[in-house]
Simulated assay, not measured.
Amino acid sequence: MASTAARPPLPPRAPIVPPEDLESFQQHLNKSTRILALLGAGLSASSGLPTFRGAGGLWRTHEATQLATPEAFGRDPGLVWQFYSYRRHKALQAKPNPAHYALAELARKKDGFMTLSQNVDGLSPRAGHPASQLKLLHGSLFDVKCSDFFCKYTESANYTDPIVPALEIPTDESDPTTISALEARAELDISDENVALPELRISDLPRCPLCKKGLLRPGVVWFGEMLPTGVINDIEKWMSDSAKIDLIMVIGTSARVYPAAGYVDSARAKGARVAVVNMDRNDAPARGLYNGDWFFEGDAAKIVPEILKSVIGEITEMPDAAVEA
């Protein structure tokens, strides 16, 4: 006969954020009018995206500088497009997480909120983040532009997957050498010597519809390239405003590489307190944390909606732009 004794109550869950830190942060957030957010790959990791360089990252056997440079595209545009087509595919399989939606809602609630993202995965735009309050420092996987020097063709929010038929990713799971089979074994390295990527001709690759001569290339900032001038000018104009900056949130990035590190320093110089959200306490900004700053350790997808709740309320997911497309 089954026992009818009452089960002991479950112990209360530990709060996501220490209550005293949450209270002091929200008090400051509520009265802040000019807020800056700096986003990095840790935010996208919460959506299940593999990182570009880290352990288990995409194409582990290739150095990033072998693929993400203008010279690499000039030497072998087919290989570079295969790499970026795979990244586009993985980004489209991922979904914006609650932190993306929370930041988008904060932008709608606070006119003086500006977000600077180092991510190229398109998840912030897909979460409905207002474009006027989102600056993509490194471009986007879903923007394309002509590689011909004399052609200025660009296209935004191209979510076609694959962008041309020749870049379709094999999906035959009965073949143990295909990409999908490797993914099923959690081996996200599709440059494995056992995987035979198709040889691509120049005519197989996406061609510029304007000049008809140049190949289209991903609209991301490659190594050795300048950050987008328009984006940098917009940020500098916002930063140079005479008004003080109340708060900078550093989410999913160590912010130790310039220009990201410089934005933290500039915000501090204008009076900002710093709030860091990261999985690793060692990943604080280059100059460390000051008295009055906050470090929220853990998953950004859980922490960001919680700390912003006093302004944005409960999160309601918005339509996904990529799905709608």
Rank of each mutant, 00 (worst) to 15 (best):
A2V: 14
P11S: 04
H28S: 07
N30Y: 08
R34L: 06
I35S: 00
A45L: 08
S47Q: 13
F52Q: 05
R53G: 05
L58F: 12
E63Y: 12
K90P: 05
Q93N: 14
A99C: 01
A104E: 08
E105H: 05
A107Y: 01
G112T: 09
G112K: 05
S117P: 01
V120K: 07
G128I: 10
S140I: 11
S140M: 06
F150M: 14
E155L: 12
P162T: 10
A166E: 07
E173L: 14
E173P: 00
S174I: 09
D175Y: 08
S180E: 14
R185Y: 07
R207A: 06
G214C: 00
R217Q: 13
G219M: 10
E225W: 03
L227G: 05
S240G: 03
I245P: 00
D246N: 01
I251S: 04
G252E: 03
T253W: 08
R256H: 08
R256A: 06
A260E: 11
Y263Q: 05
Y263M: 09
Y263V: 06
R268E: 08
M279F: 12
R281W: 11
L289W: 11
L289N: 10
N291L: 15
F296D: 01
I303P: 03
V304H: 03
I307F: 14
S310N: 09
I312D: 00
E317D: 11
D320M: 08
A322T: 09
